[in-house]
Amino acid sequence: MGQALLPYTPPLNREQLQKQGLEWAEEAIYLTRFQQYERALSLAKLASQLAANDYQPWFILGTLYLQQQQVDAGIEALQKALSLAPKEAGIKFTLGNAYFQKGEYQTAVTQLEEGLKLKPNTPAALFDLGNSYLKLGKMTEAIAVYNKAVAQEKNFWPAINNIGLIQYEQGNIKEAIDNWQAAIKLDAEQPEPQLAVAVALYSQGKKEEALKIGETALKSDSRYGDIKFLADNLWGKKLLEDTQKFFTNPQMKAVLESLEPKSSTQINPVSVLNNVGWVER
């Protein structure tokens, strides 16, 4: 009877594996700073296996999945992270964003509200909550939450901009324009409130001023010439209808035809992880 020679396998040290996993998780974050998302995702997968009982690798993995628009996989990883760290508000905030992307707005509200109970003064989470309320048609609640976000961060123009979006649908055109102009004062380079002002002015017959502002906005970011992109950014039915009329103007049609396509912005994993308190070891 022959005997096979079994190779020697050194015993694995669990603490060393866990340490290696956390180091790879940090390396994954580092790679995202250079937009090497595929490599970062591979490292995060390995990290979540080696340090399976730490929430950080799962949190990073989930965030990277969302960046790659793999929402279901992202939610699964984030739920694992939450099971390991149920009091981490940042995980709940990111889950809320994920469910919003999936179109499950009530679930998004639940996650965001739970996160805000743990960390109430978080403008980005308040903004996401306002967006979720808007999608659910709860306009009063949405405006209240946007105002809370602005109270926490005076220069938070997206919340001011979205209040204008709601007001326009409600027929409060002057108030909407006032909010969009306030957003522009906070950040003059932002094309969204510029285009919204242009559309509103055009609908009021102020065509020359509207065309000038609209051309500047679209040349700044060509994505705003796409009605679907505007709808994805929560522009309402009335504003979209008026935008389509605005785009039929010959001058605007010429501008739109001259624009070069620009890719949509995806979630920034570094920004998410920094904002929710990831601390490198």
Rank of each mutant, 00 (worst) to 15 (best):
L6N: 11
L6E: 08
L6Q: 07
T9D: 10
N13S: 07
G21F: 04
G21V: 00
W24K: 07
A25I: 09
I29N: 13
T32N: 10
R33H: 11
R39W: 04
R39C: 01
L41Y: 06
L43C: 00
A47W: 08
Q56P: 14
P57N: 10
F59T: 06
L64F: 08
Y65M: 01
L66I: 15
L66R: 07
Q68A: 13
Q68S: 06
Q69I: 15
Q70D: 01
D72P: 04
A73K: 03
I75V: 15
E76F: 07
A77T: 04
A77M: 00
A77P: 00
A77D: 01
L78R: 05
K80L: 07
A81R: 06
L82D: 12
S83L: 05
P86M: 08
A89N: 07
A89T: 09
K92D: 01
N97V: 11
A98P: 01
K102G: 14
V109G: 04
E114K: 05
K117T: 10
P123I: 13
A124L: 12
A124C: 10
A125N: 14
L136N: 05
L136G: 10
L136E: 08
K138E: 15
E141W: 04
Y146T: 12
K148V: 12
N155V: 00
F156Y: 04
P158D: 11
A159K: 00
I163W: 02
G164Q: 05
G164D: 06
L165G: 10
Y168N: 01
I173L: 07
K174P: 04
A176M: 13
A182T: 11
A183D: 04
L186G: 05
A188C: 11
E189N: 10
L195S: 02
L195C: 04
V197W: 09
V199T: 02
Y202K: 00
Q204G: 01
G205M: 03
K206L: 02
A210I: 00
I213T: 09
G214Y: 05
A217P: 12
K219Y: 13
K219N: 10
R223A: 04
Y224D: 01
L234P: 06
L234K: 13
W235C: 09
K237N: 14
E241S: 14
T243P: 04
Q244P: 06
K245L: 11
N249V: 09
M252F: 07
K253T: 14
L256C: 00
E260A: 15
E260K: 14
E260M: 12
N268I: 02
V272M: 14
N274F: 06
N275G: 15
E280D: 10
E280S: 11
